[in-house]
Design a binder for these strands. Structure first.
Lengths: 216, 216
DNA sequence: TTCGTCATGTAATGGGTTACATGATTAC
DNA sequence: GTAATCATGTAACCCATTACATGACGAA
């Protein structure tokens, strides 16, 4: 195959790379412990398909071994000595921040696959403007490719297939077409926007700090 | 949880149950060998996410051990003695037909999950009319449930979340709403239709027979 | 004769879910 | 005090993908 090609080391992201990005991205906003991380993760990956602790904790362990994050066991805390059980708070290291910056800057083919695109978009506010556009356009051409396949199949099947299968394919086709239109809107919005540089890291809302008595 | 409840043995289908239904359903139309089965499977499960041989063959083995299908090694065939290599043709047994009939009759909660619904719909022409309606309605209320969750989340996040996440959620919401409307159309079409009994098994198109020099 | 497609498989590997185990904290 | 929720983990299992291995057939 030809195409965009990997200009940067790792381009063929596996599923767990998506998780890595999501975790790093959330910790980039604020330090958190696992339980809360999981809830926020559910919001990022879509409310459905929230991942289990059986996945999260081992992967946190892995990220910690790689040196991207630290497990700071808050035994101190001044006010409450060793209370709240262990409550391991995970925090990005300098290397982890760098790693996140790297991941978020990459616009390889992996970024516009079904699995990763949503997560990429979730951290667009931390992504450079050119990269944003490249990812959106990549996603769009990915979908257009799919569009072609599906409408070919639809044309080929015409009449030969029962009405239910036909309906299914038709609805699928329309969904993809709608997503393309949506992307077009996002892309032109992106072009219109005066491209300010990515602002330095700052937690978007102070309510989600682990120490704060938050509502959830 | 309350709700529809499993009135019939196995209700909590795993992923491989979907595959089982798909394979049984395709073999119900016509005997086939693995390679072709895989191609047709791609059409049924959606062109994307076609499954690999590493999954297909072991599962065919399993179905064979369960007695639902037979592996008839076509060493005979009259015209070509032992040619075309092995070309194992899989065929439904009587028990397999019964099994398929059973699966296709079931309208348990498993049938309207994301994974299974498409495949269920693909075999609607072999499904009893009441079951069809129950599955469609089940799918609809599943989606409405999701609708509620998502729009709640959207309302709760309003303003607190960056425009990209907001766009993502909005687009997701619209997609679900569209699917609900689509289901409404299917359901009312189903109600209008004079409900003829399911016709006896007959392959919908003779072109797909394994012996025929088919176009693909 | 060599390449592409048809055709069938196995082994290694990866990665996710479920179920289980444990215990602290909060609200009633 | 007791139930619900917060919180962290482990082990067993399930199952799919990847890479590999093999080989026949048809066309160039």
């Amino acid at each position: 195959m030809s195409g965009a090609a990997e200009h940067e080391g790792d381009a063929v992201a596996s599923r767990s790379d998506v998780l890595e990005l999501a975790v790093l991205g959330l910790l980039h906003e604020a330090p958190m412990h696992g339980y809360e991380l999981r809830k926020r993760l559910g919001a990022v990956l879509g409310p459905f398909r929230a991942l289990s602790y059986g996945t999260l904790y081992p992967s946190l362990r892995r990220l910690s071994e790689l040196g991207w994050i630290t497990e700071s066991d808050r035994l101190d805390d001044a006010t409450r000595p060793a209370s709240r059980r262990a409550r391991i708070v995970y925090e990005l290291t300098a290397a982890g921040t760098e790693r996140f910056e790297h991941l978020v800057h990459d616009a390889g083919p992996a970024s516009w696959e079904d699995d990763s695109f949503d997560v990429r978009l979730a951290f667009f506010s931390r992504t450079a403007a050119e990269v944003r556009i490249r990812v959106l356009e990549g996603r769009r051409s990915r979908l257009e490719e799919r569009l072609e396949q599906v409408s070919d199949a639809l044309a080929r099947n015409r009449e030969r297939v029962d009405r239910y299968t036909l309906e299914l394919q038709r609805h699928g086709l329309e969904s993809v077409q709608r997503e393309v239109r949506w992307l077009n809107e996002l892309i032109s919005a992106e072009r219109d926007r005066p491209k300010a540089p990515v602002p330095p890291a700052q937690p978007p809302d102070p309510e989600s700090r682990p120490d704060h008595p938050s509502t959830t």
